[in-house]
Design a protein around this nucleic acid. Structure first.
Length: 582
DNA sequence: CTGGGGACGGGGCCC
DNA sequence: GGGGCCCCGTCCCCA
């Protein structure tokens, strides 16, 4: 993960103002020799000059069009006033490049010309001048473009209490896509999985029966609401309102028809040009879609790359690169092959593996090009669709050797096997309740359901990971590092049980932590595992996103820092130390 | 609250 | 280098 450095320009130490006006001198008490001289009129003058430039077309590098009307404007101004353009031009990502390429035309037919004009006036004059009859159009335009203050003002004037009122009302007057995007505010917050399930129930095997299925309506692939990509950023922590808004607006304006860059035939909007021309990828059970039916991810990459919005540079060498390119052994025992890591221009995340960035980018665009022809469910990835198709074909390739049970997924079988063995290798370090699945232990922690602190004694016997080398499913883990990873990861990096010596299971000496030195070493080992092995990482990633632009982002550089996820852990570990001494 | 199923994103390996 | 396939960790949902 890389960070663009923040540069703070030091206020110029002006000599007496040329105008001769007396200005209050603001001097920060702690900084010697730094004098801040305020120029209260500067912002107004600046805006006025920019407005004049806009009216005369001077230095305009962006033209907005709405139903034939053209409005020359400035990218920087639009990016400053509109979350949508900020996102579009990558300005909120701290993009160091120019962002968005050169002169361009942005087609905004979904915003009424009068409303767009009013919004532009607002952008350059800080004053919104509109007839009351056009208030709803302006509100809708402000919502679409992510100009929150205008939207709030319009809502106040219109007496709207809920965000969705106008949106819902107007959505009914527009295309399904607009309707979906407009009503997305409420839907976004709902669980998409829930919707998926409902959609599945609703549409059954007839994809045309549901309005949610975009297939018959348009060849355009509709971004689905609140995809897991969003969740992937936010994890269990709810996104901040600004992130919701950013994301929503980003998705709301995902219409590929909105923005085209003249002359080059490329689009600006998220590199989704192919949505215009490509049909959705549809899987037909049992035959898997022909590769010819689907767009190569190459094309997607080109789309991203051309526009310069989502993809500033496809392959960026970053500090994170060192970590990722270095040969290391993951918790799975696989050798991490040195592959060209690529940095996501949206979330700055380093994506390992050749050709994986387009796949990752779809988590941001919400594009789900792989559609099941049987039920209409869409997927971001072909392999996920393939697995999904097993539900329709009845194929259950993973069969239990001990019983007739068969499963769609390998991990289902893995979980199932743990039932046969009765193993519950994941033990709560506090109450010593054991779970068969790691995520259930995590849920146990997060749900604060662990009320009986250490009223149970540690489990003993075969249920726990023996010697750190045997997993619950009987899988041998010969790699001590992996074994350590499993225990540490399971227990929130260092469980009390681990500190006490393998969770009281009579674990072998390799996992007995005798003291601080051992603990330090284990932390170092866990650091080698990489952040993706650390539970709770997404929360910290989100925190980082939230704090980006803030003063002091807390970076999850150290696995030790992750431990603050469970505040009681510290005390527990402290107790453990005491007990160790005892 | 827990067990279990399903879904999703990331990474590794292979072609 | 890209794509397919697979595994893994994690999350959500339902019973």
């Amino acid at each position: 993960m890389s960070f663009c450095p923040s540069f703070y320009s030091r206020p110029p130490a002006h000599s007496p103002h040329p105008s001769g006006i007396q200005f209050a001198v603001a001097m920060s008490p702690g900084e010697d020799g730094l004098i801040g001289i305020p120029f209260p009129e500067h912002s107004n003058e600046l805006l006025s000059h920019l407005n004049n430039q806009r009216r005369t077309g001077l230095l305009c590098d962006l033209t907005l069009t709405s139903r034939g009307a053209r409005y020359p404007t400035h990218r920087s101004v639009m990016a400053a006033v509109s979350l949508y353009f900020r996102r579009l031009f990558g300005a909120d990502q701290g993009a160091c490049g120019e962002g968005g390429g050169g002169f361009s035309v942005c087609q905004l037919d979904c915003v009424a010309p009068d409303a767009l004009d009013a919004l532009l006036e607002f952008a350059y004059t800080a004053t919104l001048t509109i007839p009351s009859s056009g208030m709803k159009d302006v509100l809708r335009g402000a919502q679409l473009l992510g100009i929150q203050c205008v939207a709030d003002a319009c809502k106040d004037i219109l007496g709207l209490s809920t965000e969705g009122e106008v949106a819902d009302e107007q959505a009914s007057q527009h295309s399904p896509k607009v309707a979906e995007s407009l009503t997305g505010g409420g839907i976004e917050k709902a669980s998409r999985r829930k919707m998926d399930r409902k959609k599945m129930k609703k549409i059954g095997l007839n994809p045309n029966s549901s309005p949610l299925n975009p297939l018959p309506a348009s060849p355009v692939s509709y971004p689905s609401p609140a995809s897991d990509s969003h969740r992937s950023l936010s994890s269990t922590r709810p996104p901040s309102p600004e992130q919701e808004e950013l994301y929503l607006n980003y998705r709301q304006n995902g219409d590929p028809r909105a923005i085209k860059e003249p002359g080059r035939g490329a689009t600006l909007n998220g590199g989704l040009h192919h949505w215009l021309t490509e049909r959705p990828r549809i899987a037909h059970p049992p035959p898997v879609p022909s590769p010819k039916d689907k767009l190569s991810e190459d094309d997607e990459m080109e789309s991203f790359g051309d526009n310069g919005v989502l993809l500033g540079s496809a392959s960026i060498s970053t500090p994170g690169t060192d970590q990722s390119t270095a040969s290391s052994v993951g918790a799975g025992g696989r050798k991490r092959k040195s592959q060209t890591p690529q940095q996501c221009p949206v979330c700055q995340k380093i994506i390992h593996g050749a050709g994986k960035l387009p796949r990752h980018m779809r988590t941001h665009t919400g594009e789900k090009p792989f559609q099941c022809s049987a039920c209409g469910v869409r997927f971001t990835r072909n392999d996920k669709l393939k697995i999904h198709m097993r539900k329709h074909t009845g194929e259950r390739p993973y069969s239990c050797p001990h019983c007739p049970a068969r499963f769609l997924h390998s991990y289902d079988l893995k979980n199932h096997l743990s039932l046969h063995s009765g193993a519950r290798p994941f033990e709560c370090p506090h109450c010593h309740k054991a779970f068969a699945r790691e995520d259930h232990l995590q849920r146990h922690h997060k749900g604060h359901s662990c009320l009986e602190l250490r009223t149970r004694r540690p489990r003993r016997g075969s249920e726990l990971i023996e010697d750190g080398r045997m997993d619950a499913d009987g899988v041998k883990r010969s790699n001590p590092l992996e074994a350590l990873s499993l225990q540490a990861h399971t227990s929130g990096f260092l469980t009390r049980a681990a500190l006490e010596g393998g969770g009281g299971s009579g674990a072998g000496p390799s996992l007995i932590f005798m003291g601080n030195a051992e603990r330090e070493r284990s932390l170092a080992l866990m650091a080698q595992l990489g952040p993706h092995r650390l539970a709770g990482y997404p929360q910290f990633f989100l925190r980082e996103l939230e704090m980006r632009g803030g003063d002091n982002p807390q970076r999850p550089d150290s696995p030790v820092g992750q431990r603050e996820q469970w505040p009681e852990e510290e005390q527990e570990n402290g107790d453990a130390e005491v007990e160790e001494e005892e």
